[in-house]
Amino acid sequence: MPDPAITKVEVAMGAVLDAYVPLADYTIVTGRDPSEAFDSTELPLINIYTESQQFSLDGEQHQTLHDCRTNFEILENDLTPGVMSKKLQTAAAHIVAAFAADRTLGNRLQDLQELDLAPPSDTGRDVAGASLQYSVQFYTPRGDHFTIVGHGGLTF
């Protein structure tokens, strides 16, 4: 079975961060439940997951516009939980810089905008963290949430 379109977007975002040299020390994972435990050997870690999706009809193109809230949960094990340390802020700034060069993610997306940076939800983990949230917008054909319709009609 093919991956849903949002999973394809998360994987492509993960590939961008994997290739971004200033984040080379981070383990990049996609789609993991934020309440799931992480092995300490994986830290520092960035978990990419989508929190919500809203859908609307683009009547002119007869496509569905997906407006998603995607989180980049940054986890560290040597910092104070609940504190937005310089290390966490720097990692978030590198994520923003990595996507600034191509906000269409290789022509897949209509838009990609950072929204906020906050401590992640309390999951009982004994690690420090921050969650950088993005607004992610892309199109799919009506009734087909597996195929991304990018710029110029390219499909992914």
Rank of each mutant, 00 (worst) to 15 (best):
P2T: 14
P4W: 08
P4G: 10
P4F: 10
A5V: 02
A5D: 07
K8I: 14
K8W: 00
V11M: 05
A12Q: 04
V16G: 09
A19Q: 11
Y20F: 15
V21S: 15
P22F: 09
D25P: 02
Y26V: 02
Y26R: 12
I28N: 01
T30K: 10
G31Q: 08
D33R: 08
P34M: 04
P34C: 07
S35L: 07
E36C: 06
A37H: 00
A37T: 06
A37R: 10
D39Y: 03
S40N: 10
S40V: 12
T41G: 11
E42G: 03
L43Q: 08
P44Q: 03
P44W: 02
I46S: 02
I46F: 01
I46E: 00
I48F: 11
T50Q: 12
S52N: 15
S52L: 02
Q53G: 05
Q54G: 08
F55G: 04
F55M: 07
S56W: 03
H62C: 06
Q63K: 12
Q63W: 13
T64W: 07
T64C: 07
H66C: 01
D67K: 14
D67W: 00
R69W: 06
N71M: 09
I74F: 02
D78S: 14
L79T: 02
T80V: 14
S85N: 02
S85M: 00
L88Q: 05
Q89W: 00
T90A: 15
T90K: 12
A93C: 04
H94S: 12
H94V: 03
I95N: 06
I95P: 07
V96P: 06
V96D: 15
F99K: 07
T104G: 05
G106R: 11
R108L: 11
L109F: 04
Q110K: 12
D111F: 13
Q113I: 13
E114G: 12
E114D: 12
L117S: 01
L117P: 00
A118Q: 11
A118I: 08
P119I: 02
P119A: 09
P120L: 01
S121A: 15
R125W: 09
A128H: 08
A128L: 11
A130K: 03
A130V: 00
L132M: 09
Q133F: 05
S135N: 13
V136S: 01
V136L: 08
F138C: 05
Y139V: 00
Y139K: 04
T140A: 06
G143E: 06
G143F: 02
H145W: 09
I148S: 03
V149K: 07
V149C: 07
V149P: 03
G150R: 07
H151M: 11
G152T: 10
G153I: 08
L154T: 12
T155L: 10
